[in-house]
Every structure is written in structure tokens, then in C-alpha cells.
Nucleic acid binder design. Structure first.
Length: 888
RNA sequence: GCCCGAGUGGCGGAAUUGGUAGACGCGCAGGACUUAAAAUCCUGUUGCCUGUAAGGGCAGUAUCGGUUCGAUUCCGAUCUCGGGCACCA
């Protein structure tokens, strides 16, 4: 009987499902003496196109690890589920005029059967779907937790809102307002990325993707729900340290959070009305304060109307109007050419005391820092560009270290040591400081700006100090004078959490007619989506839910008042923020996850997925996890201990797979033709898991050939019986050595965590090639090999295991152990080289002494040829490796 | 512009982290089996030069330079490609 992959794979897939082979027992049934291992895949979005070849890559890797860990005696949790809310399902539904639920159900069915056809060892009893009411009930519950919590800056953690201390002297509305301003989930009028074609706002993170798809994104002010992730910026940064994640992903998150250290500085403003005002700015270079020659405010800054002079009113208003129409993208695209308008107002530089003009310009962002900056054109490229365009003063206040000796001088006087710089020094040096003077001239003329660190010049009490010290001294000075302080800023913004879509989790909130908002109680959950056969978009920017009046209006449970439901829905990220917790306790009706179970299984020991989630999903999930931890629902601070990113699989032409290119490979075809085992093996054999690599259909055929060779090694093709060369005898030394070498290589490859399964497969191929050369092969050896193969190609392994006379599934059979002594070769090839060039090789006994090796090298004919008539300078002998003779 | 990552045969990739470059697979070439083909099995396969042959020589891991007895591996500079961020003060 030939290797019939279709038949064999179906047989074992049915077996595993019917016997619930991979069911992970409930916590009380578990053997707690065994270690636990939680292997997680990033849950897929079940798209209409079905699985693509990229999915099985990561899933095969986690499946290999899961199967290996089971054989190693671990309690393994390896679940799968569906992230099914979101745009694609919704748009499909709108086009087909159906409820998205219908489409999703079909996609899930297809995905599930495709995954089962690959023989993945998921515990299907724990399957979750983010769009199930019983699931999103808890997503809503978590939103309520966020809504009903605040962040206590003193202890740096979230607390229930009841514990919030409310400032005295507020009336009821004032109190309510204050509480609302502290919630982790809050509503705010803010500029959003509005996409007219999709009829929704997008998170900053989602913008590039939609623009790539050809949609337009513009800025628009809207009332939006946000989550206060910025409060967690520092903890998200700090805890990154302890995670075993790829360095590049850590770096990506690090940059995304974007911590900047510096100071806030208060500037007094001389408004045209003569009133006293002041404004804070943030700077990372307080040491350059003496060089601040003008200020720039973001066009959206609230103070502008107060300070603008009558003469400039019109021009300023015009500029503000124009800026408000531009999207962030347009603002960035037009960045090459700086624009701006003088407000007519001035501020006082607190260090130099000089009066400086205030401008507005859209290169200053309202959403970062205080929305206003001090401009130091000499030492910031953007400020320089602006200063040149508007003819503003430029003062060099930092010199590169190379001019240190001529930029300032310490002079002893009767009063002690003083430092001089600037004009006086120039004269004193009498032309000696030519290069330094050139540098200053270049800056003053606006030809260049120096943004690096160096030494302060022209800076009063800072002059002569290196940048780091100057920063410190300035901060101290500001704090003493009470006009500034040390401060930190993050690039991370609060998470825009609402979408004007139908297909998402409804917010558990209602609005009263007077504008009050009320959060529902836990027992009111879930707030179900309306059951409609189809629906349309509103075109106004509101969610389609706003048109479904039966659903929209309801009455308040307590007062019976007529209320309107919140019509926004949550973004797709919401459901995937906590799914890994639901797997642990998927049927629990009391709580999203029992804390005892969480304590046992968390954190995730291995998490594999694509790097496209490096900053979004992985940051959001960490944030939610920390909130739940703070509120006492979890025992772990971080969810994912080890993370690994699989690389992308490109088309056979080496380019990203896409329908338009026609280079998409359908996994179904591959499984039919070559089998799931071949598919799994090939995807692991292509190269290291993290590498981006092109698909090769000839390659998968090669792996099918290998599995056929394995099959024929054990089974006689014609009779279907065990091959006559498999004998029930003690294995030969040669066979033992091959087997133990293979066990060693494969065990190490898995244990080291590098996910380089390609070399393990190569080792299996070497093993099989060797066995083919032998006339007889011990059955014991073959059985051990089948166990080694089983995590990679489980179907053929189970089949061969059974045919070799084993009644039980090998899924929980002990992983083979290796004997180090048996992996050692008796004969080793050593190289003899002269001056580093290999001249000869020779097989010698292993562990031969260095002296003997040296002697053998000198006996060698080729070596002699190359050292003849030369002086021997040095001899290097490396045991079991080589001898190098250095001659002159 | 800034931050990551990577450059090794015709192709995917190995190389115990400073010690025999090219494991394993694909492709290709040759042979065996076959009436023939497929399948299968075996052999060869970095390039150039040289030899009838066994063999021998030279070059070679993006480029240039350095450290070293010895460098794909370490250091410096450059180039190319991929990914991320992008007026964040």
C-alpha cells in the first residue's frame, strides 16, 4: 500500500476529534505535579477568502511545540478562536445585504475545517468567538470596569471610581464633571481621522492601512470614546524589560510609546490687551533656553483668540481655518514648506529676558506636549527652517565639542574664576578661533543648525557647561524660580475607542435627553446587537445603529425615562484584548475568567503571530491586562511572557501574495495534492520561522517525497505489511548513533527557542537517508524515529505507530531521550592547514591527544610539501578539529 | 531623515557562535529499472585554471579596510534590499 495521505489524514483527524485527544482537562482534573505550558496563536480574523498559506506557518510552529511539550509531560493549553468583529465582515454584509453574523458563521465554519484539515492539536472545546453574545458580554463588562475606574497617580495604578477623592467646593454637576474627567474610559470632542467612504473614524494606527487601500482620511471634530492608555505609558515601558520578546518588537513598542525627558518652562505673555498671561511649553533641551528667539503655538491652541492683536486677527483666523480643514496626512505632506502667521503678541524669554514674537504654525501639534513650543532655531532644524522663512533672530547657544577650547575661556580674576564667551572672547583670541567663528556665522545666517550635544555658549550661567550638565542646571534654576520643572512626555496618545459601525460590541451606555450619560449595570449585560436581516449606513457619520429605532430607544431601568442607547461600537481590537484569558475558562458565566485558573495558566508561555501586531494588539492587550490586574481580577502583570514573530510567506515570484498579482497559493490545493503533513513539514523546512521567504510548490513536493520515503522505510508498498527490512533485533551501533544524534539535534532545536525547525527536518532526512543504506533496521530504532517525527507530521506518524503494533495514540507518549555517549563519533575528520589554508584532511580516533595530532600533521605528505624549506613559527592544535602550522 | 533587520551556489537555506564554507532540500546533469513514460533507486553539482586520470592550484560568504595563526562569524567605513516611525519640540 502506497502512502495515501488523504486517507490517513482523514482517519486521524477524525480520531483526534472523536476521542478529544487534545482536550485540556479542567483545573480540578489536572495533575498539578506536572508543569504547565500555555501555547497561544494570535487568533485569526475569519475572512471570506479562507486560510492563506501564511496562517499555517505560525500555527504549525505552535503545534509542534504543543505536541512536543505534551510528550515531555507538560499540561498543555493550546486553544483557538475567532476575532470576527470588524470592517471586512461588515462591508461584505453591506454589499450582500445580510447581517454580518451570517457571513461570519460561514467563514468560521470554513476556517475551522481548514485548521482541522491541517491536524492542529487544538482543544476545540475551548473555542471562542469574539462576536458571540456570551463573549462580548465580558468585553462590555471590561469597558464598564474601565469606565468605573480612575488612575491614581500617587500609587501609579487604576482604582475603582468610588475611591476617587473629589475636590471640595463643587456642586453636583461639578462633581460629576470631575469624576468624568478622571475615568479610564471617557468621552471627548477631539479631532479624529474621518473616512467618508467607510463612514467611520479610524484610530491613528489604522489610517495608513486604509489609505493604502485607496480611501481618503480627513480631520474632523467628533465626540468620541477614548481609553486613557497614556496613564500606563511608563508601566508599559518599564515592564517591557522583563519580557522575552524579540528585541526589534520591544524597540518598536518603545518607540511607539516614545518617552522624552525634558522640562516644562513658563513664558509670560504680553497680550495686546495688556493682561498678564503665561503659557507652558515642553522642551527636551532646556539647556538651549537662552537661544529661544520666538514661540510657536498650534493653530488649535485655545489661547490664541485672547492674545492676537487687532491687526493680525484676520490673517490668524484665515490660517486657523485653513489648518482645520487639512488632515494630519496633508499637514505632514506639506511639511517641506513651513507656513505660519505672526499673532502680534510677544512673550518674555525667562532666561534672557528678551521679548520674543509669538507665531502660529501647523508644524506644532496640539496633541503633543502643551501645543506650544519655544523655538531655538540654532539647534532645531524645523525651527531653523521657520526662522529663515520669517526672518527671525538666530542665536547659537551650543557649540560642538571640537570648538570647546576656543568657544569659551576660564579667566582668573580678583573675584575668582569667570567664564567668558562671545564677542569679548573673539577679540581676545585675535582670529585664532576662525573655525568656531565660522560655525557661529553659519548658524546666525541660517545655513545650518546644530542639533547634537556639546557645550553651552552665549547662555549666561550655563556657558561652559556640557549639554547634560547644562540641562540639569537649567531645570534646577527653573524650579527654584518657580517658572518650570522637570517633565516627561510620551508620544503615545489616548486610544480612540469608538467606531461608527454596526458590527462591533455596543457600548453598555444610555443617554438621557438632558445629555447625561449612564453606564449600565453588570446584570444588564450583554447589550445585544439588534437582530436585523440587513441595514444601511447613516451617511451622517453616525453608526448604522442610529437608524434602527426599535433598538435605539429604550427606557431607563430605574426611572423609566426614555433613553437613547449609545450607537458607537467598539473597535476590533477590543475583543482580542483579552481572548487569551477566556480560553482558560471559556464557559464561566460568573466571571470572564476564574482567578484561580488564571493563576495556574498565566502568563502565556509562548505567543506566536505576525509582526503586524507589534504595536497595536500587543500594546492594547498589555494595557487591558494591567487594568484588570490593578483592579484585582488577575494575578499577572503581563500577559505574554515569550513572543515570537513568524515571517511572511511570499509568492513563488518572491513578491507579497496578492489576488491582483495572481501569485496566491491556496492551502486547500496543497493539502489535497501533497497532504497536511507535507504542508506542515514544508512550511517549517523553508527556513527560520522569523524569516520572510518565498513559497515553492516544488519544495512542498520534495517534502512529500521525504514522507513517502519514511512510509516505504516502514511499509512494503506492494503488500501493505511492515517492510521486511524492519527487524525485531537489537540495533547496530551505527543505528544507535544515528538515532541519538537525531534525538539530540531535534531536542536542542526545540528547547533553545529559536524556532529553527528547518535544521531538525534536515537531520530527520539525514537519518532516513542513512537507514535506506542499511540492509536491516531495528524496529526499536524506527519506532523512536516515528515519535520524533510526530510533532511535525502527526498523521503519518500515528499511522506508522499503529502499524508497528502500538494501540494507543502517540500524542502523550514519552519523547525519546538521548545518550550523550552514543552521539559521539569514534572517528573524526581533522583538517591540517598551513598558514590557515587547509592542505589535507584525515580521519583519526576521537579525542586523540594534541601531541599525536601534531605528529600526524607533520607526517602528512601535502603538509610537508607546503612547509618544506620554511621556518616553522607556530603550531596551533585544536582537539578533534584541526592543526594549523604557521611558517615563514 | 531616524530606528530595527538582512546580504552565503541557479534557488530556499546550513555552519556546534573565531577552527574543514555550502549540511539538508529544490532545480539541473548522468546512470539503473522500464517497450516507453511516470514513480523509484544510485551518482554528480560554488566558480575558474590544470591534468588522460586519481588529483592539484587559485579565487570565493555584498564592497573596502582592520584585528587574528585562522574571520560567514569580531571591529570600522561604504553600498544594496526589506520592515517600522516620521514636523513628537
Amino acid at each position: 500500500m502506497k502512502y495515501e495521505h488523504l486517507q490517513i489524514e482523514k482517519k486521524w483527524q477524525d480520531f483526534w476529534i472523536n476521542n478529544k485527544t487534545f482536550r485540556t482537562p479542567e483545573i480540578d482534573e489536572l495533575d498539578k505535579s506536572k508543569p504547565k505550558y500555555y501555547v497561544l496563536d494570535m487568533l485569526p480574523y475569519p475572512s471570506g477568502d479562507g486560510l492563506h498559506v501564511g496562517h499555517p506557518e505560525g500555527y504549525t510552529a505552535t503545534d509542534i511545540i504543543s505536541r512536543y511539550k505534551r510528550m515531555r509531560g507538560y499540561n498543555v493549553l493550546h486553544p483557538m478562536g475567532w476575532d470576527a468583529f470588524g470592517l471586512p465582515a461588515e462591508q461584505f454584509a453591506l454589499k450582500k445585504k445580510i447581517n454580518p453574523k451570517v457571513g461570519v458563521e460561514e467563514c468560521v465554519k470554513r476556517f475551522r475545517s481548514q485548521l482541522q484539515a491541517l491536524g492542529f492539536s487544538y482543544d476545540w472545546d475551548r473555542e471562542v468567538n469574539t462576536t458571540d453574545e456570551e463573549y462580548y458580554k465580558w468585553t462590555q463588562w471590561m469597558f464598564l470596569k474601565l469606565y468605573n475606574s480612575y488612575f491614581d497617580d500617587n500609587v501609579n495604578k487604576a482604582k475603582p471610581i468610588e475611591q476617587l477623592e473629589i475636590p471640595e467646593g463643587l456642586d453636583e454637576t461639578g462633581k460629576a464633571k470631575y469624576v468624568d474627567s478622571q475615568r479610564l474610559a471617557f468621552i471627548s470632542e477631539s479631532p479624529v481621522n474621518w473616512c467618508p467612504e467607510l463612514g467611520t473614524v479610524l484610530a491613528n494606527e489604522e489610517v495608513p492601512e486604509q489609505i493604502e487601500k485607496g480611501f481618503t482620511v480627513v480631520r474632523r471634530m467628533m465626540k468620541q470614546w477614548k481609553l486613557r492608555i497614556t496613564k500606563y505609558a511608563q508601566r508599559l515601558l518599564d515592564d517591557l524589560e522583563e519580557l522575552h520578546w524579540p528585541e526589534n518588537i520591544k524597540k518598536l513598542q518603545y518607540n511607539w510609546i516614545g518617552r522624552s525627558d525634558g522640562a516644562t518652562v513658563r513664558f509670560e505673555i504680553k497680550g495686546s490687551d495688556g493682561k498678564n498671561r503665561s503659557i507652558d511649553v515642553f522642551t527636551t533641551r532646556p539647556d538651549t533656553l537662552f537661544g529661544a528667539t520666538y514661540m510657536v503655538f498650534a493653530p488649535e491652541h485655545k489661547i490664541i483668540p485672547e492674545i492676537v492683536s487687532d491687526g493680525q486677527k484676520e490673517a490668524v483666523q484665515k490660517y486657523i481655518d485653513e489648518a482645520s480643514r487639512k488632515s494630519d496626512l496633508e499637514r505632514a505632506e506639506l511639511s517641506k514648506d513651513k507656513t505660519g502667521v505672526f499673532t502680534g503678541a510677544h512673550a518674555i524669554n525667562p532666561a534672557s529676558g528678551i521679548e520674543i514674537p509669538i507665531f502660529i504654525s501647523d508644524y506644532v501639534l496640539m496633541s503633543y506636549g502643551t501645543g506650544a513650543i519655544m523655538s531655538v532655531p540654532g539647534h532645531d532644524e524645523r525651527d531653523m527652517e521657520f526662522a529663515v522663512k520669517f526672518g527671525l533672530d538666530i542665536i547659537p547657544v551650543v557649540t560642538p565639542a571640537e570648538y570647546k577650547d576656543v568657544a569659551f575661556k576660564k579667566i582668573r580674576t580678583e573675584e575668582g574664576e569667570i567664564i567668558i564667551s562671545g564677542k569679548g572672547l573673539e577679540k581676545m583670541l585675535n582670529g585664532e578661533a576662525k573655525e568656531f567663528n565660522n560655525y557661529c556665522e553659519e548658524i546666525k545666517k541660517g545655513k545650518t543648525s546644530f542639533t547634537g550635544e556639546g557645550y553651552s555658549i552665549n547662555s549666561g550661567f550655563l556657558t561652559g557647561l556640557p549639554t547634560a550638565e547644562a540641562k540639569e542646571k537649567m531645570i534646577k534654576w527653573l524650579e527654584e524660580k518657580g517658572i518650570g520643572k522637570r517633565s516627561t512626555n510620551y508620544r503615545l496618545r489616548d486610544w480612540l475607542f469608538s467606531r461608527q459601525r454596526f458590527w462591533g460590541e455596543p457600548f453598555p451606555l444610555v443617554h438621557f435627553e438632558d445629555g447625561r450619560i449612564k453606564a449600565l449595570k453588570e446584570e444588564d449585560l450583554p447589550v445585544r446587537l439588534p437582530v436585523v436581516s440587513s441595514y444601511t449606513t447613516s451617511k451622517t457619520g453616525e453608526s448604522p445603529l442610529s437608524l434602527i429605532e426599535d433598538w435605539l430607544y429604550t427606557s431607563d431601568k430605574d426611572t423609566g425615562e426614555k433613553v437613547k442607547r449609545e450607537t458607537n461600537t467598539m473597535p476590533q481590537w477590543a475583543g482580542s484584548c483579552w481572548y487569551y484569558l477566556r480560553y482558560i475558562d471559556p464557559k464561566n458565566g460568573e466571571i470572564f475568567c476564574d482567578i484561580e485558573k488564571e493563576k495556574y495558566w498565566m502568563p502565556v508561555d509562548l505567543y506566536i503571530g505576525g509582526s503586524e501586531h507589534a504595536v497595536l494588539h500587543l500594546l492594547y492587550a498589555r494595557f487591558w491586562h494591567k487594568v484588570l490586574f490593578d483592579l484585582g481580577y488577575l494575578t499577572t502583570r503581563e500577559p505574554f511572557n515569550v513572543l515570537f514573530n513568524q515571517g511572511m510567506i511570499l509568492g513563488e515570484d518572491g513578491v507579497k501574495m496578492s489576488k491582483s498579482r495572481g501569485n496566491v497559493i491556496n492551502p486547500d490545493d496543497m493539502i489535497r495534492e501533497y497532504g497536511a503533513d507535507s504542508m506542515r513539514m514544508f512550511e517549517m523546512f523553508m527556513g527560520p520561522l522569523e524569516a520572510t521567504k518565498p513559497w515553492s510548490t516544488e519544495g512542498i513536493a520534495g517534502l512529500h517525497r521525504f514522507l513517502s520515503r519514511v512510509w516505504r522505510l516502514v511499509i512494503d508498498d506492494r503488500t501493505g505489511e511492515i517492510n521486511s527490512k524492519i527487524v525485531d533485533e537489537e540495533p547496530s551501533d551505527e543505528q544507535k548513533k544515528m538515532l541519538h544524534t537525531t534525538i539530540k539535534k531535534m531536542t536542542r532545536d526545540i528547547e533553545d527557542g529559536d524556532m529553527k525547525f528547518n535544521t531538525s527536518i534536515a537531520q530527520m532526512m539525514i537519518f532516513v537517508n542513512e537507514m535506506y543504506k542499511m540492509e536491516k533496521v531495528s524496529k526499536e530504532i524506527v519506532e523512536q524515529f516515528v515519535l520524533l517525527l510526530s510533532p511535525y507530521a502527526p498523521h503519518i506518524s500515528e499511522e506508522l505507530w499503529q502499524r508497528l503494533g502500538n494501540n494507543e495514540s502517540l500524542a502523550y507518549h514519552k519523547w525519546p531521550e538521548y545518550d550523550e555517549a552514543l552521539t559521539k563519533a569514534e572517528q573524526i575528520t581533522v583538517a591540517f592547514s598551513v598558514n590557515g589554508k587547509v592542505r589535507s584532511k584525515r580521519s583519526v580516533d576521537a579525542d586523540l591527544s594534541e601531541k599525536d595530532l601534531e605528529q600526524l600533521a607533520f607526517d602528512d605528505v601535502s603538509v610537508n610539501k607546503h612547509i618544506f624549506g620554511k621556518n616553522i613559527v607556530k603550531i596551533i592544535v585544536v582537539k578533534n578539529k584541526m592543526v594549523n602550522i604557521v611558517v615563514k
